[in-house]
Write a protein that binds this DNA or RNA. Structure first.
Lengths: 360, 360
DNA sequence: TTTAGCACTCTTTTTGTTTGAGTGCTAACT
DNA sequence: AGTTAGCACTCAAACAAAAAGAGTGCTAAA
């Protein structure tokens, strides 16, 4: 992803950079004159023109039509982003604010993600994305059954990851405390460590046998377990600040925006895309680098959040291809950093109080 | 809301109805000629013109400009909707489909709502809205503490409404089983039946006293309880099918649509609006009947879902003012009906298996 | 009471014209 | 060599004028 571009002269790089930033700023094609006037490049517009013609031929720039200014091509953006990432300076002046905002609302991982998405959106003025990725396979490490009333009991499940999930189960008639205890014991002995697809009919039948009377409880209970595990496996995505996008003329075509919206709501494609990312570092997908067609005019920046080495979430930003990469990269780094720091810190109850419950 | 309109002649009503429906269909002003040609009104366009002039003067129609066709005013829509509601025919041919779809995904109330919202959206081609309204005051009826590992335990809370909530709590050091038992006992004795704002500092201090050693557990635990209760109190809103809206030219102005999006994402106003609704029946807010400014060009149809007499959710549809009220009203009725039937039915475990966990 | 006919209005569409930003090229300049 | 000034050329966007068309209101006849 991060190829080198040795063939570019220093001046070409400067011009490219200036042009990209000017275009990010204004959104319109940038002409040679403009660059000379605003960007202290100490040469004449004609020179710039020559260089720009070169850059266009090399594929870094594109001309919407004869006699329009130039616009960065995807390759141009890519060059810009790559060089940006290299010389990356983590000016962390905003970190304090982030920490405060996150701590204020800090609770379950779900909420952290949601808040982070909001934060990312409001700080960048693009659309924030929070993703709880698909867990490859969840297993249970402990079951506990709690009686609620005459014909309800709650099943408390603790996953291998330490998350807690609860289900309320309705029973036909009164259920003895003894039955519950036995059922819990059976679950603990037979289902711990199994993934969803390892729970098969033979196992259920065996449980029913072992349960004796009260065997009618087994089926719905196990079904519940299975459902919870499947549910935990599935990813989830939250967007915030969608309205920001509409401020950019790139999204003024409501037809196209509608399609984008539809794709985003559908979640599947984006989840796929993000979950399939190989690197743990920050990802930048520019335009058609993304396999999702309707996003070919957009860019997506995202980074996984790790907790004890495991990915527990992804925070990202979606915006027009000409998004302010410098700011976005910085913001995402800061937010993910803050969250990671928060999650990894093993602090006593007095201070942190609690963490996630039904999170993955 | 449902006033009578006795002054309208039968023909005027027919014309009004035809015009509203034609406008819903096409979205453009409807002329006299069009009505004659398509709607079997057996009179000439001139006659229609006269009648339309009348209807306009009465306030049912509006002329965007001289020599354009007529468009229904809000009052016109209101009349149309009211008369529609009266002669309402519940043709339940789609109910089967609804039931199947809902049952397939039926789990917690949250999921039911979400699915219902999706369903409403896909059936009507407008935006579906699912709302978990603010509960005025949640109290707990039972606490249970479950040890997870050396320095984590889970708190299982059962609300007055029978919902189950869980929180994982991190502890400083190892916590004895005995401590947990005692803590649970204290919680059950002192916090059951209290609403969030009744949990005050004196109570916490008293608990800490009674707890003796292990008193350091009290503070974070109670804080958790308080958070869960506050969280349960708060409403929540899910949208689906936002992209549908963009198919209607009414929303092609991306500026305005952006504002609408922002308002919807913010949730507060809509939650307020829906929670404040007095009737338990279906609500139809046409244009400026809604207090939310950005929705003055839209209509909102929604209906609460009752479970054992209590409102557990709201399902609605948001669309352009010229939405297909007949279809939307019918769909909402059917969906809410299906859900209500599903929730109220007290069936044995074998069949229903489970219901909501952390739902309200 | 209904309808046909006609003049009138106002938007939408079309067509043509102008303007201006920006380029590419060439020739002069350093 | 590389750089710059000047000029002709291109093309989209902005503007203006004209034509088309849809729909009305009104009047007079059926």
């Amino acid at each position: 992803m991060s190829t080198k571009y040795p063939e570019l002269s220093e001046r070409k790089r400067q011009i490219l950079k200036a042009l990209v930033e000017a275009h990010i700023e204004g959104g319109e094609p940038v002409g040679s004159k403009y660059i000379v006037q605003n960007n202290l490049l100490s040469c004449s517009s004609a020179t710039i023109r020559n260089e720009m013609a070169d850059l266009e031929q090399m594929g870094y720039l594109v001309q919407p039509h004869t006699s329009a200014g130039r616009v960065p091509s995807e390759m141009g953006y890519r060059f810009y982003v790559d060089s940006l990432v290299e010389q990356y300076a983590k000016t962390t002046h905003e970190v304090v604010q982030i920490n405060q905002l996150l701590k204020a609302k800090m609770a379950e991982i779900d909420q952290i993600l949601e808040t982070a998405s909001r934060l990312a959106s409001s700080m960048t003025n693009y659309t924030g994305i929070a993703i709880k990725p698909k867990a490859s396979s969840v297993t249970m490490s402990k079951f506990e059954l709690v009686s609620i009333d005459a014909n309800h009991f709650a099943m408390v499940m603790i996953t291998s990851g330490g998350a807690v999930k609860t289900k309320k189960i309705k029973t036909l008639g009164r259920v003895e405390g003894e039955s519950l205890r036995r059922l819990a014991e059976l679950l603990n002995e037979n289902l711990c460590g199994l993934s969803a697809d390892m729970i098969t009919l033979p196992i259920i039948m065996e449980l029913e046998n072992a349960m004796g009377d009260g065997s009618h409880l087994v089926n719905p209970t196990v079904k519940c377990v299975w459902e919870v595990m499947s549910e935990l496996d599935g990813g989830e995505m939250r967007l915030s600040g969608l309205n920001h996008l509409l401020k950019y003329p790139e999204y003024s075509d409501s037809q196209q925006f509608g399609q984008l919206l539809g794709t985003l709501e559908n979640q599947d494609e984006i989840l796929e895309l993000v979950s399939g990312s190989e690197t743990d570092d920050i990802n930048v997908l520019i335009g058609s680098e993304s396999p999702v067609k309707v996003m070919n005019n957009s860019s997506l920046v995202f980074k996984p959040i790790k907790k004890n080495g495991k990915t527990v979430g992804v925070i990202g930003v979606l915006g027009p291809r000409r998004m302010n990469y410098r700011q976005v990269l910085q913001t995402i780094e800061e937010i993910t950093g803050s969250i990671a720091g928060m999650l990894d810190s093993e602090q006593p109850a007095k201070l942190t109080g609690k963490e996630e419950d039904h999170g993955g």
